[in-house]
Amino acid sequence: MKDKLNAVKTVLCAVFAAGCAVLGFFFWDASDRAGALLEENDALREQLSVTQSDAKNAAAAAAELQEQVDEMTAQIDELNSRLEQAAQSGADAGAAGPMVYVTPSGSRYHNEGCQYIGKRAVQMPLADAKEAGYTACAKCE
């Protein structure tokens, strides 16, 4: 009987040893997989951190560009307003008709470049000069 008990003991020890070896293998394999997953997790966290930093930098650059666009838009609007005013002024001047020169003491009007324009001549629309009684000089008729 002692031999049978020793044989059972030996078998149990062998089974226990084999079970421990199998469990050790599973734990070793699980430990390796867990280590690999932790390394992958760390790499992904680092990549996420870099991506978040890039996104913050891109957002700041976009905000700065938007400020520049807004400033340029305001400048363009101001220039367009000035252009419209200049065009309106030009239209008003064109509506007044051709311009001539008169002197306060004379009764004649002169075109630009006329040799008889005096030093004190002032510019006015032709229609206004005629209405005020001015007549064309002999050279400007």
Rank of each mutant, 00 (worst) to 15 (best):
N80L: 06
E112V: 09
S31W: 07
E112L: 10
A7G: 15
K139Y: 10
L126K: 00
G118V: 05
A74H: 08
A55M: 06
A63H: 03
D77T: 13
L23E: 12
R45N: 12
Y134H: 02
D54H: 08
T51Y: 15
N57Y: 05
N111W: 03
R45T: 06
S81P: 07
K9M: 06
M72L: 08
A18C: 06
T10W: 10
T73W: 15
F27R: 11
F16L: 13
A59M: 07
T10G: 12
L65G: 06
D32R: 13
E84P: 04
A14P: 04
V100Y: 00
A138T: 15
V100E: 00
Q68E: 13
A59C: 00
S81C: 02
F16V: 14
M72Y: 12
K2F: 12
A86S: 00
A55P: 00
K130W: 03
K2A: 09
A87K: 15
T103M: 09
N57G: 04
E71R: 14
A30Y: 14
K130M: 00
C114H: 00
A17E: 07
G118K: 05
K2S: 15
G35Q: 12
A127P: 04
E71C: 14
R82L: 14
A43I: 12
S107G: 08
N80K: 07
C114W: 01
R45E: 12
A55R: 05
E84V: 10
Q52C: 06
L5G: 05
D3V: 02
M124Y: 00
A96D: 02
E112K: 11
M72T: 12
V22H: 03
V122K: 05
S105D: 14
A91N: 02
G97S: 01
I76H: 14
E39F: 07
A138W: 13
R82A: 10
E40S: 03
E64W: 04
G94N: 15
H110N: 01
V15Q: 09
E71T: 15
R45L: 13
A132S: 07
S81M: 06
T73C: 13
D128R: 08
D77K: 11
A127L: 08
R45D: 07
C13D: 10
Q75M: 15
F27L: 15
A36E: 08
E71S: 14
N41T: 05
A21P: 03
A61P: 02
L37S: 02
S105Q: 12
F27N: 14
T103Y: 06
E131I: 02
A93I: 08
A129L: 02
A61L: 11
W28R: 08
L126N: 02
G35L: 11
A14F: 11
Y134R: 02
E71Y: 12
A14V: 09
A127V: 05
Q115S: 15
R82E: 11
N80F: 10
P104W: 03
V100S: 01
G19S: 04
K119N: 08
D29N: 08
N80W: 04
A129F: 03
C114G: 02
L12A: 10
G113P: 01
A7V: 15
